[in-house]
Amino acid sequence: MALRTAEVTSGEVQTVVAARRLRHARRVFIGVGRPSTAAILARMVHNPELVLVYESGTIGAKPFHIPLSIGDGELAETADAIVSVPEMFNYWIGPGRIDVAFLGAAQIDRYANLNSTVIGEYPHPKTRLPGAGGAPEIASSCGEVVVIAPHSKRTFVEKLDFVSTVGHGHGPGCREHLGFRGAGPTAVITDLGVLEPHPESKQLVLTCVHEGVEVEKVRDETGWELEVVSDLQVTEPPTGEELAALRELVSR
């Protein structure tokens, strides 16, 4: 099936790239929205053995439809195991039994720290966001974290209004100092490209742009002086198989 890139939306590219990231993962922790779509797509196209874990306590869920909430009935009905919330955090997430966690955020900084709590001052916020939920302990304990976020200056900021979730903290050695177990954020997948922490500085650098995206555009939409790696990659466009599977999934 021939599909021209022009027909593909940036959101579809973002989902396809996130799904590819799960090619070799064994167990992934996901919330609703694009992360969930990407993980179900990964099971369909790349990795049928992938174990989906939702915060609601459903381990090994095999949803046919994209769930609206993390606790939809279909997740419970198809799960290998259903556990309580204390068990989910204390026996499954805390000990690092999950390889990859997908997280989102309203704001992200150059060290991939996340804000999902407030815009403005905490006691008198301009905008009250939902809050941290499970993210702080997910990010400190899971094998690695992949952040999925829309690329704009509103989201990619110089300084967070509130640190809800620690990514790489203040830089090298910070996670180790705090006693965190996992590797922390290893990629930020946006609708423009992919940012990854520099191995030494831990600052996010642009390693990949989606097809047709100018580097200048990515810089413009980033709230700090974004560095670009010398061997910048271009995302391999979604294949016919990936796109057909994604669209079929969304239409269910």
């Binding site: 702080p136 302990e137 509130f162 640190v163 809800s164 979730t165 620690v166 705090l178 006693g179």
Partner: peptide, 9 residues
Amino acid sequence: MRGYLGTDL
């Protein structure tokens, strides 16, 4: 528990 460390919470 392990948690909260490093956050503004």
